[in-house]
Measured scan of single mutants.
Amino acid sequence: GKMTGIVKWFNADKGFGFITPDDGSKDVFVHFSAIQNDGYKSLDEGQKVSFTIESGAKGPAAGNVTSL
């Protein structure tokens, strides 16, 4: 299901970062391709987001990332 969290950091040049889930679980990798907006796909440190957990090739990653 949907989770919420805070963006820990995001490197716009490399197109990835990490989200710290509100439930205290392990930080989740986020790739820019998972960001659900029409414009420039980037996130800001400290931004609140909702997301799902998808299993990627390198382990769990955030999917369906939407800013709240």
Rank of each mutant, 00 (worst) to 15 (best):
I53H: 05
W9G: 02
A12L: 13
N64V: 07
M3C: 05
S42G: 12
F16I: 15
P21F: 05
N11A: 11
D23K: 07
A62V: 03
V28L: 11
V30T: 03
D44A: 14
T66M: 12
A12R: 12
S55T: 14
F32Q: 11
E54V: 15
T52Y: 13
V30M: 07
E45D: 08
K26M: 13
I6Y: 14
V49A: 02
G17Y: 01
G1T: 14
S25V: 08
D38R: 03
G59Q: 06
F16M: 06
N37Y: 12
K26L: 10
S33N: 08
I35T: 03
K2L: 11
A62D: 01
S33G: 06
T52I: 14
F18G: 02
Q47L: 07
F51M: 04
D38P: 13
N11L: 09
N11E: 05
V30P: 00
S33W: 07
V28A: 03
D44Y: 14
V7F: 02
F51P: 00
D13L: 14
A61N: 14
E45M: 14
E54Q: 12
L68Y: 13
T52F: 09
G46N: 07
I19G: 00
G56D: 10
T20A: 11
A61E: 15
Q47E: 14
K41I: 07
S33V: 05
T52Q: 13
S67Q: 12
G39I: 10
N11P: 02
T66G: 05
I19R: 00
A62E: 01
T66A: 11
S55A: 12
E54L: 15
V28W: 03
P21N: 05
F18M: 07
F18R: 03
P21E: 02
Y40F: 14
V28F: 05
I19S: 00
K8W: 03
F16G: 02
G39D: 11
G59D: 04
L43R: 01
D44K: 13
D13A: 13
G59W: 09
K14N: 04
A34V: 15
P21Y: 08
F32R: 15
G39Q: 12
S67H: 12
G17S: 01
F32P: 02
F29H: 02
F51W: 02
D23Y: 08
K2C: 05
T4H: 10
A57D: 14
K8P: 01
M3Q: 10
A34Q: 07
F10D: 00
K2S: 09
K48E: 07
N37C: 05
N11W: 15
K58W: 14
T52M: 06
S67I: 15
A34T: 09
E45P: 12
K58T: 15
D13G: 11
V7T: 04
V30G: 00
G39W: 12
S33E: 05
T20M: 15
D27E: 14
F32G: 05
A34I: 03
A12F: 12
V65M: 02
V28P: 00
S25C: 04
P21A: 06
D13S: 13
L68Q: 10
Y40Q: 12
D13Y: 13
S55K: 15
T4F: 14
F10R: 01
A34E: 09
A57M: 13
V30A: 03
P21L: 09
W9S: 04
I53E: 03
G15R: 06
L43S: 01
P21V: 06
Y40N: 11
E54I: 14
Q36L: 13
D22G: 07
G39H: 08
A34S: 12
K41V: 11
A57I: 14
S33R: 07
S42F: 14
E45G: 12
A61G: 06
G1R: 06
V49N: 00
I53G: 03
K26Q: 13
T20H: 10
K14T: 04
A61T: 12
N37M: 09
S33D: 05
W9H: 04
L68P: 07
F29L: 04
V7S: 01
V7I: 08
N11C: 04
K14G: 08
Y40L: 12
N64R: 06
V65K: 01
D22H: 10
K41W: 08
F16L: 05
G56P: 05
D27Y: 04
G15N: 03
A62Y: 01
D44T: 15
T4G: 06
K8E: 02
F18S: 03
A62K: 01
G24R: 08
L68W: 07
G17Q: 00
G59C: 04
K26F: 12
A12Q: 12
N11S: 15
V28C: 04
L43W: 06
N64C: 05
S33I: 05
A62N: 01
V49M: 02
Y40K: 09
Q47Y: 06
N11G: 05
D13W: 15
N11H: 11
G63E: 11
T20R: 06
K48M: 12
N37A: 14
G15A: 03
L68G: 09
F51I: 02
F10A: 02
I35D: 02
V65Q: 01
I19W: 00
K14E: 05
G1D: 12
G15H: 05
V30H: 00
G15D: 01
G1W: 07
K26R: 09
K26A: 15
D44N: 09
K2N: 12
G5L: 00
F16P: 00
T66Q: 15
V49W: 01
V65W: 00
D44C: 05
M3D: 05
G5H: 00
N11R: 15
G39K: 11
I19Q: 00
K2E: 07
M3P: 06
F10M: 02
D23I: 06
D23F: 10
F16Y: 11
G5C: 01
D22R: 04
H31Y: 07
T4W: 08
F29W: 09
T66R: 13
D44I: 12
D23H: 12
Q36T: 15
P60N: 08
A62M: 01
G24C: 04
D44H: 15
W9A: 03
K14W: 15
S50D: 06
K48C: 04
F29S: 02
P21R: 05
D27I: 08
E54N: 07
D22T: 11
F10C: 02
E45F: 15
G46F: 06
S50C: 05
N64G: 09
N64F: 09
G1V: 14
A57E: 09
S50P: 00
I35M: 06
G56M: 09
G17F: 01
V7M: 03
L68I: 11
D27Q: 08
V7R: 00
F32W: 13
Q36I: 08
M3I: 13
G46M: 05
F18W: 10
G46Y: 07
S67N: 12
K48F: 10
V65P: 01
K2D: 08
N64M: 13
W9V: 04
T66E: 12
H31V: 03
I53S: 05
I35S: 03
K14S: 06
S55P: 15
E45W: 15
G17I: 01
L43T: 02
G1M: 15
T20D: 03
D38T: 12
G1P: 13
K14Y: 14
K8I: 07
G24A: 07
E54G: 07
G24Y: 07
G24V: 04
G46L: 05
F51K: 00
